[in-house]
Design a protein around this nucleic acid. Sequence first.
DNA 1: CGAAGACTTGACCGCAGTCAACCGGCGTGG
DNA 2: CCACGCCGGTTGACTGCGGTCAAGTCTTCG
Lengths: 257, 257
Amino acid sequence: MENNKLMDKGPFSLQNLNRFSKQSCSGCRVADQCLPGLIVRNNSSCSLDRYSLDNLVERRRIFHQNEHLSFKMQRLDYLYAIHSGSCKAYYVDHEAREHITNFYYPGDVIGLESIFSRKHLVDIVALETSSICFIELSRFMQLHQQSSEIRTQLVNLYSQQLWQAYCMQGTFKAEELLVRFLLNLSHHAKARGESEEQLHLSMGRHDIGSYLGLSSETVSRVITRLKKQKLISVNRSMITLRNLSALHLLGGNVESV
Amino acid sequence: MENNKLMDKGPFSLQNLNRFSKQSCSGCRVADQCLPGLIVRNNSSCSLDRYSLDNLVERRRIFHQNEHLSFKMQRLDYLYAIHSGSCKAYYVDHEAREHITNFYYPGDVIGLESIFSRKHLVDIVALETSSICFIELSRFMQLHQQSSEIRTQLVNLYSQQLWQAYCMQGTFKAEELLVRFLLNLSHHAKARGESEEQLHLSMGRHDIGSYLGLSSETVSRVITRLKKQKLISVNRSMITLRNLSALHLLGGNVESV
DNA sequence: CGAAGACTTGACCGCAGTCAACCGGCGTGG
DNA sequence: CCACGCCGGTTGACTGCGGTCAAGTCTTCG
């Protein structure tokens, strides 16, 4: 029932999509936030014809929860863009600990960190039922050579992701980390036109911990503490930020990317 | 005396450089590792004339220890490439703690994480007397639009740096962090044609700690421990890796970038 | 030679990891 | 329909790594 409500409120109805479908970016709902979408949208000043651009996304496919988009060490044939849903990227270290490198949401492009090695450096998994766009890498690189829009957008995208990654380095208190994580989610949700207070966490406590460098127990404890301080309220995987300004203070007012 | 020896062995004699000097990449000693250098070297298939390329680096200048290349929040007019010496980039958080985002060595390009915001997101400081190449950002972006070499190299560079940053996320033991740090230095030194066992640490313990998310005391203690295990030997800022394979084991055999 | 600063070492403490018990929702099968 | 088991989340007790504070050492430089 909770789930049905979510589906109805979602950006589009999953049922209407074929499992494999030829898609174009022109009509995409998250085109505003997405790299291919941005490029297509700015087509006017672009040296490429509309056909090439709309074919940047080769196809789209539904992935179910815990289904892999790709495995570590596979050849890097595609980048992925998230149309709806969410994914995590992770690798397993020599002591069998899972390290999540990033979470991805609608409009995000996946795989940028792996390009130099020409193979996937991480496993990529859907956190919930998700609609994923396939961007053939060779075509992308071709278009990248031809379109100044792609170039500009790509540099900005890389630059942002790099800065974001830098901001995760160093040592922080558990509370600070978690608050920043939540504010980051909120920021991105807002950018996508969703609520900035109501967050739906598609990943488990363990995943959050793995991303932030904490144990799932610590994540749980900090959430409980924030709940007691009335800064957030929690309903299963739904978190409501009750006092954004107070949270910004706790998180150190980091200008999120 | 130690210093003189270093100068003589160094890649080139600092004294021969003017403080400001017009430079070209064609004859540069670290061109093999450097982004502008790589581009100039592959000029054959390049759409740009040699003049434009050699003028990618607008000028070169000597910075002394602790001298700032640029300050946080300044407009981003230049990227920097290190010709010799080394630098650190850092920001100060809301609790006045210094976070080092990265160290830079000959051939490295500085400023890539700041491009999207059009201003410097970090302070950049020379760790020792260093010769720094100035790359005017507007010219770089122009050339980036014109040269497919720059594009390919830049994507690879970003991709690498992003992966490297991802690998620093998550939680690791102090020993593991430090060993990986040393092995990374070793790896890069080797790539520059220097010794992979003899490392000269141009930054202090505090800086290493700030980069790895440790206190300087912990860095010191771990170094002492490794010394006692005969894995390294230490002579002030000179560290010798005595057992690379054992160190690789401790560091978790991470494929360094 | 003396002062300043970086590094080392020791003592103590606190945050977060680990281990374990418990809870509560959900799905499955009787 | 209920009973059961599973899994993710929460909570508690304990521990240990690494932070903090402080003293002491070594190096450099004026």
